[in-house]
Design a protein around this nucleic acid. Structure first.
Length: 283
DNA sequence: AGACAAGCCTGTACGC
DNA sequence: TGCGTACAGGCTTGTC
């Protein structure tokens, strides 16, 4: 296993797992108090103003677009992006507060929702319906990778619009929202396509396999509650890891034999990201 | 000790 | 000129 190649970053399946947990925890609850301690955690608006906006609001539903969590409240939306190392935990108020806890939401059932983020890339903000900030952020995103609309036809449109490598296309949130580095590699393997394939070279059969691979990898990963590799990696709201890492065919397996053909998995850098693929199975 | 991991944004360079 | 793409840098810190 490559040093540091620990998939700690939440992508769609991990964020979806958190969303489901949040829905069960937050819907119908009212946020009674908000405490922001991280100086970078709320950066699109004043943290005190953010706290004022959220306090006293009842949660109606919890949605997700790509890697963004949308906590729909009466009168506005709490937006959460975990970025690289952000995580959310539900705790009793007396429970030890881990280092790097940057925000605490107290609920009317006495529990706390805590936002923990060592690298502080993650962020929170709250938008009123009449504000455009949500549209500015979410409106840039392509269709959600878990949505039925991501089929061979849509992918055909994308590859004519964006001439680049397959990996760069999959990582581009404006094209398809929710895929990150781990699942991009896994999707390419499942589609038997090299990550460095030029998008303009993909034919109908390739696009059909790609669409099927996207759906199946994302669906299986959601069912496995995401990927957790190594210490400090992603955990769900209750601190439990996902299990999809046991199904990884290529990510983090550079040099290991391919599970299908035995060829050594190749590793390298593409689109600025560590990239792994089977040089024999993927063309 | 310094390189690396990552998502996302921004700035810049480049080729057609 | 302009557009789309490629790439580097910034942000950050735990790990190797």
């Amino acid at each position: 296993m490559l040093a540091g190649a620990t998939g700690r970053v939440p992508e769609l399946p991990e964020v979806e797992t958190v969303r489901r947990g949040l829905a069960g925890t937050l819907v119908g609850r009212t946020v009674t108090e908000v405490k922001i301690s991280g100086p970078r955690t709320v950066r699109r608006q004043d943290p005190a103003e953010f706290a004022r906006r959220v306090e006293g609001r009842r949660v109606v539903s919890v949605d997700r677009r790509g890697k963004y969590l949308l906590v729909e409240c009466c009168g506005g939306t709490l937006v959460i992006h975990l970025r690289m190392t952000g995580s959310l935990r539900v705790s009793d108020p007396g429970a030890d507060r881990s280092r790097h806890t940057h925000a605490v939401f107290t609920l009317d059932d006495g529990r706390e929702l805590r936002f923990v983020d060592p690298r502080t890339f993650g962020e929170l903000f709250f938008v009123f319906p009449e504000e455009t900030l949500l549209d500015d952020v979410i409106g840039r995103l392509g269709p959600d990778a878990a949505s039925d609309s991501v089929d061979a036809g849509l992918l055909g449109d994308l590859v004519t619009r964006r001439h680049t490598t397959l990996k760069a296309l999959l990582l581009d949130q404006r094209m398809i929202a929710g895929v990150g580095n781990i699942y991009a590699d896994e999707i390419c393997f499942a589609a038997a396509l090299r990550p460095d394939r030029r998008t303009e070279s993909l034919g109908p059969d390739d696009l059909a396999r790609l669409a099927a691979a996207l759906q199946s990898v994302i669906q299986r990963a959601v069912e496995a509650r995401g990927t957790s590799l190594g210490d400090g990696s992603y955990r769900d709201l209750d601190g439990a890891p996902g299990t999809f890492q046991s199904e990884h065919a290529v990510y983090g397996r550079g040099g290991e034999p391919c599970s299908v053909c035995g060829t050594a998995i190749a590793g390298g850098r593409l689109a600025g990201r560590s990239t792994h693929f089977c040089p024999s199975c993927q063309r």
